[in-house]
Design a protein around this nucleic acid. Structure first.
Lengths: 352, 352
DNA sequence: CTGAAAGCGCTTACAG
DNA sequence: CTGAAAGCGCTTACAG
């Protein structure tokens, strides 16, 4: 492994000059710059990142907080893969890498003294590694840890959860508007008895999609019936039981907006089991556009999120803060546009 | 941020002693050890990782090579999320983190001089960061890069692709055996005209599953008909067109083993379009057990892979090499057992 | 069991 | 435009 010292000697310049060639090329005379560059290429020289980080106090890594231990088993992020792809390639374009933070008791106990304020050890790792920033993916039980980050002053962007802090922001879909698209579509098909299977009210997407549902109905002059509002938890099973209850109502809905595709799939199964045909007896619209949405029978009409857009937007936001320095303004929260994807479960093909 | 120097001063000991408390606790007298530990906790001291890495020449990070740029668009790893969960938590247990390597032209050109031998810049990053080891996820076009790693002497474990090198190993499913399970199941249901939609022969899983198919037929005394062997590329579309061809044969098969669930789903769609009922007219068995397998109509009978087992096994293998040092033997390739999951597409419920 | 010292490979004011 | 020097925060033989 060539070091900067060797390279400097072979070029007949000082370490400082070599360092400048790579970090402030304009401050070096073209002649020496070229000489150093050529020699560097010849020796296949690569500056050591640990040394750079140690000297500058900041690494070229962004942390990804995604709890894999405390999470409810069987849970899967609806589009983690797309998110990762968007995130990783956008960071790559800036020369940054993504560090998936080890979490959970095991990891933490291997380290020096656990901190009470940081039970899972996230912040710990960030400090040890001098990370440039951090991207937070909610797993439902990280509220305190996320608040810690947001307050820490480190560039920090969360996915689908509102965080507040000096250099903290977040990205979500335009959830209320997306829910509105779904509901207006059902209204346009002639439905008036439209129920919803909402996500948990404490989550941002859950609350906003429900608000969008209410707003769209109100706007159309359709009163919201509280017996038409069922709350699920985004998991399939909750969609199933919510649908069962809705269909058992004295006056069942003719259409259902499920605030998540997993719940919509559960609802579909429940309808099938209840001998209720979709979309003929009850129309169904979901939210997310996960892969299975197109494959279930009937194919699910749903509000598509801009999946890789999450990753790209998150990367753009961290990078803006990282490269802008402390003086740069914190980017405003990002709202990604959604798209209604009409398939078969809403009955648009054969409106009543 | 407390440094080791401050901690040492406050404890009235040397830097060396503090360092030993954390790295070789037994070499320190219990009395001073406790004093240092208590003070460390009080000050919330955390050793800086960059400094450690610089001093020791080895980081506590394992690289994950997963190309997101060169990959065919729309491609998704069948179970990346499970793999990551298994990998991450197993590494965490050893106190290691997972670094997703930035790849692609953009990232690389931001760095000092690109190398001809390492066009995508993987090895580059590994060197710069003194990574402890690396896990390789094939994206179909990384053969040269993988070979580079395997030869480099760095602890290296690949997923589903055989690599060869001094400290290189890999983990796959027992693909031949798994294919055998599928075929024997179909034989047991009375089928004799069993076709296969194989994966690409140049991939390990593709080749092995095909071999398993052949072996199982041979063992049962059923001759292999070459017109019953269609090759796909693991994508859905290829399963679709392969199935079309098989069904158009003068003597079409009564059962098909698709070497991947995506292809099986494509085959299912093709059968439906051809007016061919599954499983009544043709039985179908897949491989992988991806999420949609249970959701298509009819639900897909398939050979399930041990998804998170891949991550765990990969982590175990790197860790064995990393913690064992250069002297430790390179772990043998791992073969994960598969499980036949019987659903509706094979017709086991109503054997002919 | 403990300390003084050298070293890991960089960056960055400070002079010139 | 360039160099000498200090410093980043650790680890690890080497003595004692």
């Amino acid at each position: 492994m060539t070091t900067i010292r060797e390279l400097a000697q072979l070029c007949g310049v000082s370490l400082a000059t070599v360092s400048r060639v790579f970090n402030k090329p304009d401050s070096v005379s073209p002649k020496t710059r070229e000489r150093v560059e050529r020699m560097a290429r010849e020796l296949d020289y690569r500056p050591n990142e640990s040394a750079r980080t140690l000297a500058t106090g900041r690494s070229t890594m962004v942390g990804l907080v995604w709890d894999t231990d405390h999470r409810r088993s069987g849970w899967r992020h609806p589009f983690l893969q797309d998110l990762l792809i968007g995130l990783k390639s956008a960071l790559s374009a800036h020369g940054y890498h993504l560090l998936m933070l080890a979490t959970g008791e095991a990891a933490h106990h291997r380290q020096v003294g656990a901190s009470l304020a940081d039970p899972v050890g996230y912040v710990d790792t960030v400090r040890r590694h001098d990370l440039a920033g951090v991207v937070l993916i909610d797993s439902g039980s990280d509220a305190e840890a996320f608040a810690l980050f947001a307050q820490s002053g480190l560039p920090c962007v969360a996915i689908d959860v509102a965080v507040d802090g000096p250099r903290a922001t977040y990205v979500t879909s335009a959830n209320a508007e997306g829910a509105g698209q779904a509901v207006r579509h059902l209204l346009g098909l002639g439905h008036r008895r439209i129920a919803t299977i909402a996500g948990p009210a404490r989550t941002r997407p859950g609350a906003d999609r429900l608000a969008g549902y209410r707003a769209a109905l109100a706007e159309a002059g359709v009163p919201v019936r509280e017996d038409y509002v069922a709350e699920g938890d985004f998991y399939r099973a909750s969609g199933h039981s919510a649908m069962r209850k809705l269909l058992a109502l004295p006056e069942p809905p003719t259409a259902v907006f499920a605030a998540g595709d997993e719940m919509a799939v559960g609802a579909l199964l429940a309808a099938r089991q209840a001998g209720c045909r979709v979309p003929d007896d009850v129309a169904l619209v979901g939210f997310d556009d996960i892969e299975v949405a197109a494959l279930v029978e009937p194919a699910l009409t749903t509000v598509a999120q801009d999946k890789s857009g999450f990753g790209r937007a998150a990367a753009a936001a961290v990078m803006a803060m990282v490269e802008g320095g402390k003086a740069a303004p914190t980017p405003a929260p990002v709202e990604l546009a959604t798209t209604l994807v009409v398939r078969d479960s809403c009955g648009a093909a054969a409106p009543r």
